[in-house]
Nucleic acid binder design. Structure first.
Length: 314
DNA sequence: TCTGGAGTGTCAATCAAATA
DNA sequence: TATTTGATTGACACTCCAGA
């Protein structure tokens, strides 16, 4: 069996971290040519370039980015091993790299991440927001452990990924005091030509809301489309339009943004998914996230059902 | 446009450790 | 002890960029 030369990997890792041969050579007290030779040797071992030479700059290739992520974990564990061997208090930790779809409400995301961060042995969190397609690509390439989304991955996506349903949330319609006064009477028929703030067509929730409008035979005016749930909520709080909000966030919208409930979008449900590259998840923090999320979202939904018998209408 | 500095690549020589 | 192998060094060349 051919073994990876960890000395070479360490040099590559330092070059990636320092941002160039010369800086890495300075910090390692070697000459740049030494690092250059070792780097070439490692690239030969991997069978592909780890850096793209752009003029005087070294930019990580996709293979290099992946290698750097592995090297991060390898050398962090190495430090922990040294600490343990020398009797210093060292706890074995593991980082969590999460992709978050922009249309996911950030307070929901944080609530989902909290149990993962409380997991024994949790190291550090890396959370990145992007479009679903980009995040799924990174997940498939092994650069993310899990993607949190409000829609399952498209079947035509081409990547081998698995969606785990975390739970679902009913959807309510909120407005600031002025718009609430204007559109509350006669809800939902009153929504004809009402200014609506909606997630973009890529969000899982959007098609369900569009269907609901058709069923109610109302055609509101689209005042804004957002792929960022936080920005959409700010626009709603500033009176730019009526805002669909997950029932789990009702108290937050009423208390923090002083918005008022118009009514429920009966039958509209938003689902949350954890998408992973592996069918059976092994990462302890991801497992903790999924277990806690299923409990939380199910509880939130049943609690909401209890409250729904007498919706708070001012 | 020229020039000097900085960053990177290549090559030959040397050194040290492992192996026969 | 001679040979092999891998790591390292120093010299030099090349490219790019910023400033004159």
């Amino acid at each position: 069996m051919e073994w990876l030369n960890f000395h070479h990997l360490f040099y590559f890792w330092r070059i990636a971290r320092e941002g160039g041969l010369s800086k890495a050579a300075d910090s390692l007290q070697l000459t740049h040519s030494t690092l250059s030779a070792q780097l070439r040797s490692l690239e030969g071992f991997f069978g592909g370039p780890l850096f793209e030479r752009r003029g005087r700059r070294l930019v990580l290739t996709p293979l290099g980015e992946q290698a750097a992520l592995y090297a991060d974990d390898i050398f962090r564990l190495g430090r922990e091993l040294v600490d343990t061997a020398r009797g210093r208090v060292a706890q074995r930790t593991r980082s969590l790299r999460v992709g978050v779809v922009g249309s996911m409400p950030k307070s929901v995301v944080y609530r989902l991440l909290e149990p993962a961060m409380a997991c024994p042995g949790f190291g550090s969190l890396y959370a990145r927001q992007d479009h679903p397609a980009q995040l799924l690509e990174e997940l498939a390439a092994g650069r993310l452990h899990v993607v949190l989304a409000d829609a399952p991955p498209p079947e035509s996506g081409g990547q081998r990924v698995y969606a785990h349903l975390l739970g679902e949330s009913d959807v309510l319609l909120f407005a600031d005091a002025r718009l609430a006064r204007q559109y509350r009477k006669g809800f939902p028929a009153s929504l004809a030509d009402a200014p609506m703030l909606l997630p973009t067509a890529q969000a899982g929730l959007r098609s369900a809301i569009d269907r609901w409008f058709i069923e109610q035979r109302v055609q509101p005016r689209i005042a804004g489309e957002f792929d960022d749930a936080g920005l959409m909520r700010v626009a709603g709080a500033r009176g730019r339009g009526l805002l669909p909000v997950r029932s789990a966030l009702r108290a937050e919208v009423e208390d923090a943004h002083a918005m008022e409930l118009l009514g429920p979008l009966e039958g509209v449900v938003e689902r949350y998914y954890a998408i992973s590259a592996e069918k059976r998840i092994k990462h302890p923090a991801v497992l903790a996230l999924i277990e806690a999320a299923r409990l939380q979202l199910e509880l939130g939904r049943s609690r909401k059902r209890t409250r729904a018998t007498g919706p708070k209408v001012k």
